[in-house]
Design a binder for these strands. Structure first.
Length: 410
DNA sequence: TCTGGGGTCCTAGGACCC
DNA sequence: TCTGGGGTCCTAGGACCC
């Protein structure tokens, strides 16, 4: 006789409901029900934020008074009814709903609540995968009670624990894998729980638009629609080989899998960063020659901050790159790989400066970014050799670049 | 007066090596 | 003289996600 069957995989996706807006409403409950837009601008001083806790509604900053180039990060439902949505320019949104209240994004505050809800989750179910500030996957499979009611009992418990500790609500989908769980968490928002079993594929998943699959974005959706494929069910009827012919070996095969609800990816509890970056969009477009001093200062500042990020987190990186966005919104990147991984601001600045020289800078710039990739943890054997050897281990082209350093553009 | 910032992963070509 | 064929690293761009 065969042994016991392994327990069914029960994977949960937890999504905080309107996370940023909800955190802001904890601070400013007087704004409940009003059109509020979060985005743009700089975070005001703590004193101002404290003060606002008791501020009458009519004294909050309004969208119509905003000047500048920010975008909306999120908007409350009361603001959305005016046609305002995420990623919309604030100036455009101000035309749609000038009386909306505008709050600056306060990532520090959101991160605080993020850490809090994740700690509550791992206390209950330790196998948690971090998917950003307001989302996690949780493996219910081996958690006591994780199989009860298909996971509903545990989902309720987690929802209650998070609400009791933070006052925030979330939605949870539980399914045999991450792909379906992610879709399920959207089914009954807000404060929803949805349980999807493998046998529910046709009824619960196939009627949905292809775009609901995590990984199918606007481009893939448009291409699918042009091929008269609209729902996941449509996608499931496509031959695997046909999808591969249209979308490539990897994407095509994956699409076929996804449409049939297949996904074996594990819940990953630890992961190492691959790259770190800093970028900024300027208040006005800048020209490499005419605004050289200003750009140079911003460039140095980005490198300094990035070096600080690396050092604080204990990483060094070998590939240094820049990203530019021009006034026509076209972007380019350039990078260069060093012989020796670094977290040093001067090295970052110098290498990034050399990358910049490989770009045609006749157009004005709207954004400048600096990136470090091929990261390794500081103190491991491969990156602890003394720095003075680096010239010897450089390739000839790098040595030339190093020598050409005095010829920096800015 | 369009269009943030911080990430991951994939593709594709060329260099270089065996 | 016909065009080999992997494998890996580097670079650039792009799709996608939160």
């Amino acid at each position: 006789m065969p042994g016991l069957l392994p327990p069914l995989r029960r994977i949960a996706h937890l999504d905080m409901d309107a996370f940023y807006a909800s955190v802001e409403l904890l601070r400013y409950p007087q704004l409940k029900g009003l059109p509020v837009v979060i985005g743009g601008g700089r975070r005001p001083a703590d004193e101002v934020l404290q003060l606002r806790g008791a501020l009458p509604v009519d004294q909050f900053p309004l969208l119509q008074d905003y000047v500048g180039r920010g975008v909306i990060t999120t908007a409350t439902y009361a603001a959305r009814v005016f046609g305002i949505g995420s990623a919309m320019g604030l100036m455009k949104a101000a035309k749609l709903c000038p009386q909306a209240i505008l709050l600056p994004v306060d990532f520090d505050e959101y991160r605080k609540y993020s850490r809090q809800f994740k700690a509550i989750v791992t206390d209950i179910a330790p196998l948690m995968e971090d998917r950003g500030v307001d989302e996690v996957y949780i493996d219910f499979t081996d958690v006591p009670g994780g199989q009860r009611e298909g996971g509903r009992t545990l989902a309720r418990l987690i929802q209650k624990a998070i609400f009791d500790a933070t006052g925030l609500t979330c939605s949870i989908g539980v399914a045999p894998n991450k792909l379906i769980a992610k879709m399920a968490s959207e089914f009954n928002k807000p404060q929803g729980i949805a349980i999807v079993h493998a046998t529910d594929l046709q009824t619960a998943i196939w009627p949905l638009a292809c775009r609901k699959i995590n990984g199918i974005g606007p481009k893939a959706e448009a291409k699918l629609n042009a091929l008269d494929i609209h729902t996941i069910g449509d996608l499931a009827t496509c031959e695997r080989q046909w999808l591969i012919a249209h979308f490539g070996k990897s994407t095509g095969a994956w699409m076929h899998h996804a449409a049939w609800g297949r996904d074996e990816r594990p819940v990953v509890t630890v992961s190492e960063p691959v790259s770190m970056s800093r970028e900024t969009t300027f208040d006005r477009d800048l020209h490499a020659v005419r605004d050289k001093a200003e750009l140079g200062a911003i460039f140095t500042d980005l490198c300094t901050k990035l070096a600080g990020d690396l050092q604080r987190k204990g990483y060094v990186g070998k590939t240094i790159g820049i990203k530019l966005r021009f006034d026509d919104f076209k972007s380019v990147t350039r990078d260069a790989t060093l012989a020796q991984a670094t977290a040093d601001a001067t090295t970052l600045r110098r290498t990034a400066g050399l990358c910049l020289k490989r770009v045609d800078l006749s157009r004005k710039l709207r954004l400048l970014g600096v990136r470090v990739g091929t990261l390794s943890k500081l103190g491991t054997s491969e990156n602890s050799s003394p720095n003075r050897l680096s010239l010897l281990t450089q390739s000839p082209s790098e040595a030339i670049n190093t020598i050409a350093f005095n010829d920096q553009l800015f």
